[in-house]
Design a protein around this nucleic acid. Structure first.
Lengths: 201, 201, 201, 201
DNA sequence: TATGAATGAGGATTCATTCAT
DNA sequence: AATGAATGAATCCTCATTCAT
């Protein structure tokens, strides 16, 4: 799929991505129909397939776009910053993404849950490399006594799971908490959790 | 459907549940076909529908069975036990379930991700009640100074997310960690995390 | 299908016939299922097929039984009776059958409507012969000036249609007439109609 | 479903209605398959469902079309015409419809026989109202001494049953009458029957 | 005589995709 | 660039019938 050229192409490309996100994040790939995506996009079904060669191509396009944004916050982890604040900041940024882009989080979760058929290579390639790199940074901080001794990979997993939970399990969270906004109190809770865990004694 | 009576019914009922778990946890409800379930069960498709009235009934049957087991560990949280050990024990039990019953965890995650169409009532009813009850217990422990001051609901969410992550995002975890068994080190990591967070200073 | 021998065979044979009549008259042959018939008969489906070799055999058995009773009133038309009273009596007997055996009437109507696949030979054989015989009788009455000159075949059709209508189109009749019993007033109406039509001036 | 717009839609819509009439009038709703209708229409099965959402929708569409035409002749009963001629004319028009549209008659009969699941509301609404209105007219004629005293509702039933019989029981009529055209002699017979019944002495 | 278990042959409907314009 | 029309390949489910006991 080459990059779109004209105005209208760019616009419709974006419209379809938005519609695909809306639909796929809700029903999963197999559970969604092109009709639903076309409906959400306000385009005809054949027109969708004028811009994307297949249903799967729309889904793949979404995942590609998504992954870039998804890894960005981890990239920003600054080796030269204050370690505890860097890690807390990373967690808060991830939590904000769960709050502001829950559909993206759910789309990603669905893909992983089903065995990551589309993005396994990215996980084993780019993501793994990036995580290893950041683990080195964290290990450096531990060696320097700037944070407590923790398993860096599991620390990263903890940040991911604790923050994404509020997007992915949103229905459950709200079923239990009722009307209250979960994210405000979650931010406080996670701030405390990570500070407690990371601050050296 | 009432409980199965005869030997062969019990056997096939169980065989179908197992096959359904295998298939549905991998592809979700809409993404799975009766053919797949029949294949996995070693039965013919119409024979499946001799035991369960529909595809959905198999799925619902699974969720019902699942929910019972799923809530059990939280029930076991003993108000009279040692608070830190009780909560650590709960987390370890949940982690063991992620390790031993990852498909159940994924089935549950898929259902929640898609808006919990089947089990929302249970979430808003039984689960909510149970969580509230245990929150009271935790608040008692905090008031007594036996654990640090934390938000009890978010503490429970944290236990859930941190443990289930290893089942639900298994593919990602293994992509990053490689061949190493994630659960052994995860147990150590979570033990540390929760002890650090809960032990009063 | 040989005649049933033992008590229990006779009983179950009759039970199945009754159930088949109930079901087939309501939904037609193709629209009925063996399950429905088995349910109505209080027998298991395989047991049904122990007494009758197939679904079609039950249906055929019903039609055979039915036809005997169905032609009986016409047989009774007495060449030596009072012509007008004989024909009025025949009409009243047919009307009573519509009232008392509406399911039989509907079963017969359904079969004819669908082209009489099972009983066409009977229609072209026995029934045709019987009607021709009775037409001779009616023609004799006309020749003797005992009733008005009418087309005897169409007279017989008129008796059939006017009486069976109250069974076959029962739903429509009641939709229009409301709660009132249609048969009492129909009897009066038909008495008048046929007397008016047949009485010589 | 809104009215078809384009040429091809109009054509195929009509083609499907015609095919549905052919098939449903012969085998009833449950006894007919979409394959048969598709075959009769010269279209593929999915293409049928491109124009109608379901098998039932085709059937319902037929009944709706049918009912309009079916009630028309009764509408035409003119309160200001010559009473006997009006009623005879109505009967002859209904008989002509049985001759020219026997499949419509049989479709209607099948629907009623099975309890009118689709059109009961119409029977209890529009049809009932129309019949009551025309009964008033007939009662007026009786009061004015223009026709003999008859039960108006049963008179209408008689017209319906006597005329529709030749379409609905066509197979039986021809089995008995042989090759002769039933409708010509039926017209003479019914003319005589109704004139005899209605003409005041 | 009776029935629990099983199935092959459909049958209605869905859906991604293609065709024609 | 867009869409009305069409379809082949599923997919869930039904049902008369058979099997095994």
């Amino acid at each position: 799929m080459t990059k779109p050229r004209t105005r209208i192409q760019q616009k419709n490309h974006a419209v379809i991505m938005a519609a695909g996100l809306e639909v796929f994040s809700q029903y999963g790939f197999r559970g969604s129909t092109l009709d639903q995506v076309a409906e959400a996009a306000g385009l005809s079904k054949p027109n969708l397939l004028y811009y994307f060669p297949s249903k799967e191509a729309i889904y793949q396009g979404l995942l590609v776009e998504l992954l870039e944004n998804w890894l960005e916050p981890l990239h920003q982890l600054n080796p030269n910053g204050n370690p505890v604040e860097e890690l807390l900041g990373y967690a808060q940024r991830k939590l904000a993404m769960s709050r502001d882009y829950p559909r993206e989080s759910r789309l990603f979760a669905t893909e992983i849950l089903q065995g990551a058929p589309e993005i396994k290579p990215v996980l084993e390639g780019e993501l793994r490399t990036l995580v290893k790199e950041k683990c080195k940074v964290i290990e450096g901080w531990i060696a320097a006594g700037q944070i407590r001794k923790v398993d860096p990979v599991h620390l990263i997993f903890s940040i991911w799971s604790l923050t994404q939970h509020y997007a992915d399990f949103d229905v459950q969270v709200r079923a239990i908490m009722g009307e209250r906004d979960p994210f405000a109190s979650a931010a406080v809770h996670l701030e405390d959790l990570f500070r407690q865990m990371l601050t050296p004694t």
